[in-house]
Design a protein around this nucleic acid. Structure first.
Lengths: 138, 138
DNA sequence: TTATGTGCAAAACATTTGCAGGAGT
DNA sequence: ACTCCTGCAAATGTTTTGCACATAA
């Protein structure tokens, strides 16, 4: 959380933020790039990466380092948990209480100063469950 | 969890598993490569990747997809949580109870079939905390 | 003997960075 | 004006893969 003071309000930044706010799907940098490119065809992928990183640093958005190879971004900054489909990779928010109390247990069980925690559930999403029922292969 | 039937016991696999068992530090594939190379100088990095992946698939070891850019591997397969130092990136096991009950809450709060969950705490490790006390910069 | 596994090198991805020109303040 | 930012392309870092040879079963 820093940076805000001298961060310019550019068209690229506005649109990245708008597009990220439109979806609940936690897009990867490349997916954000595709979304933004529809409105700003000449934007560079580097600009998208730079700005997502910058916004995550400033606390305007959240950078998720969940399972899978790519990082994902989330316009919702209130603490919440995620669930990832092990079959298709999609990541959803999950509306359940944040277990603040486990931080104390972690403090006792480690030599660390605890800053927070994140829970990632894994499971099979509705669509993949149905696909498996229909098609017995896989 | 599959594959075990026709998986051959090669020297490379034995040594990878032994070296991973020696440490508690959740090494990256490249760190495992360095450890193994001291004993098998001609082993290829690809072999290390292939075997770590295969062993994780078979459930012999655990693949951690935690924060940071590289995947990490863990010889301990019993469910347990992890804590990552946001300053130096090291990842430790944390000896606290696994909160099985939150899976039920997640089942209710989502459209998913829940398979499990993982908790990753973030914090500052002892070494980094001391380094900061000594050196006020950073 | 023969299917699997290995070493090596190249390919495939994801992300970061240098730089010259462009745009917010 | 004076920084900061952008597009572009090249560089970097991580992981995967194709292939000819080697080896466990």
């Amino acid at each position: 959380m820093n940076n805000l003071p001298n961060m310019r309000l550019t068209t690229q930044r506005q649109i990245i933020l708008e597009e990220l706010g439109k979806v609940t799907s936690h897009p990867t940098a490349n997916e954000v790039y595709d979304m933004v490119r529809r409105r700003l065809p000449r934007i560079g992928l580097g600009t998208v990466y730079r700005n997502l990183e910058l916004m995550a640093d400033s606390g305007i958005i959240l950078k998720l380092e969940v399972g899978g190879t790519q990082k994902r971004f989330d316009a919702t900054t209130e603490p919440h948990y995620h669930i990832r489909c092990t079959s298709c990779g999609r990541v959803d928010d999950i509306a359940m209480e944040v277990q603040e109390h486990i931080n104390k247990a972690a403090e006792k069980a480690s030599n660390y100063v605890i800053l927070g925690h994140h829970v990632e559930f894994s499971g099979i999403c509705r669509a993949c469950a149905e696909r498996r029922n229909t098609n017995p292969l896989h």
